[in-house]
């Protein structure tokens, strides 16, 4: 039974990993070798030539792509925490109807596919003078994180005993201080979950940066950069595989190193229904 389970897990693991193996080994091969010997690891087929070419692609500076994407991830996460946490606190501590409606409003936002918003948002941002700018993009991405954050945070805060707030208030702390210094520290697990989720969604987002950050902004993220670099050469595998590998490697390495925290962090906050 145990052997059967192990065998099954082995087969599944291979199925999961084969595409990644192919991505890695074929990033070091010529087109003909990729097609005729995709699985081969023979050293005389391997060359770093194409990887170097992908790294020095003048149209897609991968380092810049990373810098921009990381900047977005940090800004969106920070802004999302700053905005979503306090409002969730108020919502979960007030029983009055307006606040219940407020929660409902935010939660309704989780059911709106972001592509539906994307087109009208172009005009909203244009009206605000924020189209093709970092603040415009970050504000929209942050807004997209609000519904689920508020839903998760307010549920979590309602499990924190009110006596803590009351103690703080008696001690003369205002609402802000009570929240940031007493309640917020206790929200660490759920905030961690949300940060992981938001990091994934900003990191992987393609449609939003593609449309909201036009050519005049001079900005591209990893995904939009890849789309421009790979989309036009989709069958020149000596461009496709090395470029994809460069894009995939850093998040994968980060994942391997942090996997315990990422998977753990996702589960802790997420079970809070």
């Amino acid at each position: 039974m145990k052997a059967l389970k192990l065998g099954f897990m082995g087969v599944v693991a291979v199925l999961m990993l084969v595409p990644m193996y192919l991505l890695v080994v074929n990033a070091f091969k010529a087109q003909q070798d990729i097609l005729t010997n995709p699985f081969s690891l023979s050293p005389d087929l391997l060359t770093t030539e194409y990887l170097v070419m992908a790294l020095s692609n003048p149209d897609f500076d991968i380092v810049k792509g990373y810098a921009v994407t990381i900047l977005f991830v940090v800004l969106v996460n920070a802004l999302s925490i700053l905005l979503a946490c306090p409002v969730s606190y108020v919502i979960s501590r007030r029983a009055r109807r307006p606040y219940r409606l407020l929660l409902l409003l935010f939660v309704a936002g989780t059911f709106i596919p972001s592509q539906v918003l994307l087109i009208p948002v172009v005009y909203t941002l244009k009206f605000l003078g924020l189209m093709n700018s970092i603040p415009g993009f970050v504000l929209f991405e942050t807004a997209l994180t609000l519904p689920f954050s508020v839903f998760l945070y307010s549920g979590y805060i309602s499990t924190i005993p009110r006596s803590l707030d009351e103690a703080a208030t008696i001690d003369g702390a205002g609402v802000h201080r009570t929240f940031w210094s007493v309640i917020f520290p206790l929200m660490r697990p759920v905030v961690a979950t949300m940060v992981i989720l938001n990091t994934f969604s900003v990191w992987n987002d393609f449609a939003n940066p593609q449309i909201l950050l036009g050519p005049s902004s001079g900005l591209y993220t990893i995904t939009t950069g890849i789309y421009a670099a790979v989309g036009q050469y989709s069958t020149d595998y000596t461009v496709v595989f090395p470029t994809l590998l460069l894009a995939a490697a850093p998040p994968l390495i980060a994942f391997v190193l942090l996997q315990r925290y990422i998977i753990g962090g996702l589960s802790t906050g997420a079970v809070k229904g």
Partner: peptide, 14 residues
Amino acid sequence: VALSACGSGFEDSS
């Protein structure tokens, strides 16, 4: 930082 980026980004676009 975001705010200052906001300022410069805005100037750029205008």
